[in-house]
């Protein structure tokens, strides 16, 4: 197989093959009362136009912090990006001026948050909030902006958009509010959307509607999409590739189909096994022992070693690198061969 990787991009700078977003060796720390919490410890991932990358992890795995760093909305202090690059269209956003970043934020990269009710302003109508995008970024008049807002609400299939444009967030149901969030993210037709747990707060029947809508709009605009989630099921539906995070590192990356069939990292494997399955009813569920680590005291070597059934001495001393385990697949485990094998 031919691998089109960074070296190709380095030879011909700004070649069309360069990914839309390329995160390189990102490190983020937080100063807390208990010491320095290392939230992100060397994350690498890239997203192409029209591609969906799912970032999977539990709370505290660093998946949302990475997204906040990309968006430039990290709380600093206490947060601090200690090293790394975030290349967007080949340009490092971390070295840009505030002015330049503001031009990208919202216009080129947009974000959808988990809790639409707290992300929307309760005292402004949704039409006003949607229109704000056009007034601020494109200098439209109030009247024009409102028409655009109605158009957007139509686009995300809010019934009777014309009548509802002056309604306030609390007058919409959870699913509708999330559609408004999607509309807001889409407003300026960005190149990249980051969706942080977009359906976690929704019921399953509504969750399916919202995910379908998001996937459809993504195809229509050929946007890149980073989907941050803890739900293995949601990922399977829409993602092209997956990055699994644990304690601030990516422990496994793979095309979506492969990871479910043959996980190459014991953590991913444990997560998949702990899902209740029909053929194992009545038996004990497989459970990963122990708890996710405290980020101020991440275990030495592989962060997963205290919970890992395969851990050996080397796991306690050496940090595993992301081994290439197949086409487009990586696993940060010393024993990836054994994990893949059985």
């Amino acid at each position: 197989m031919t691998v089109i990787d960074e070296t190709a991009g380095a030879l011909a700078p700004a070649a069309p093959a360069a990914p839309l977003l390329d995160v390189r060796d990102l490190h983020v720390e937080f100063r807390t009362r208990d010491g320095v919490a290392k939230a992100v410890n060397g994350v690498n991932y890239s997203v192409n136009a029209g591609e969906t990358l799912a970032v999977l992890g539990e709370s505290g795995s660093g998946k949302s912090v990475t997204a906040q760093a990309i968006m430039g909305i990290l709380d600093m202090p206490p947060g601090r990006i200690t090293s790394g690059e975030i290349l967007f269209h080949g340009k490092d956003m971390l070295t840009m001026s505030g002015e330049e970043r503001r031009k990208i934020r919202g216009r080129k990269i947009a974000m959808i948050f988990q809790d639409a009710l707290s992300a929307l302003n309760p005292v402004l109508s949704v039409g006003y909030q949607l229109g704000e995008m056009f007034r601020v970024h494109q200098g439209m008049s109030r009247k024009q902006a409102k028409l655009k807002a109605i158009e957007l609400m139509d686009r995300v299939r809010i019934p009777a958009a014309k009548e509802r444009v002056n309604d306030y967030p609390h007058q919409f149901s959870g699913g509708m509010r999330q559609r408004i969030m999607i509309a807001m993210a889409l407003a300026l037709e960005p190149d990249l959307i980051i969706a942080d747990e977009p359906t976690t707060a929704l019921d399953v029947t509504v969750q399916a509607q919202v995910m379908d809508l998001l996937a459809e709009l993504q195809r229509e605009f050929t946007m890149g999409l980073i989907l941050i989630t803890h739900d293995l099921g949601v990922v399977a539906d829409v993602a092209d590739k997956i990055a699994v995070m644990y304690a601030g590192r990516i422990v496994e990356t793979a095309p979506v189909h492969e990871i479910y069939r043959r996980p190459a990292h014991p953590y991913t494997k444990g997560l998949l096994q702990s899902i209740p399955r029909l053929d194992r009813k009545g038996q004990e569920l497989y459970a990963i022992k122990g708890l996710p680590p405290n980020l101020t005291r991440i275990p030495s070597g592989c962060a997963f070693n205290p919970r890992c059934p395969m851990a050996q001495d080397v796991c306690r001393t050496d940090v595993p690198v992301l081994h290439q385990v197949g086409p487009g697949r990586g696993s940060a485990c010393h024993f990836w061969k054994e994990t893949l094998g059985d």
């Binding site: 019934p159 149901s173 959870g174 699913g175 509708m176 019921d203 399953v204 029947t205 509504v206 969750q207 399916a208 509607q209 995910m211 379908d212 739900d231 293995l232 099921g233 949601v234 990922v235 399977a236 539906d237 979506v256 189909h257 479910y260 069939r261 998949l272 899902i275």
Partner: peptide, 27 residues
């Protein structure tokens, strides 16, 4: 039936064989 079909299944292959019912509207 709709509820069961809407549950995301962590298995992309099983997923493709299943008919999905997407309900319209909200509760």
């Amino acid at each position: 039936q709709a509820l069961l079909s809407a549950v995301p299944v962590p298995d992309p292959e099983a997923r493709e064989h299943r008919e999905r019912i997407i309900l319209s509207g909200d509760v």
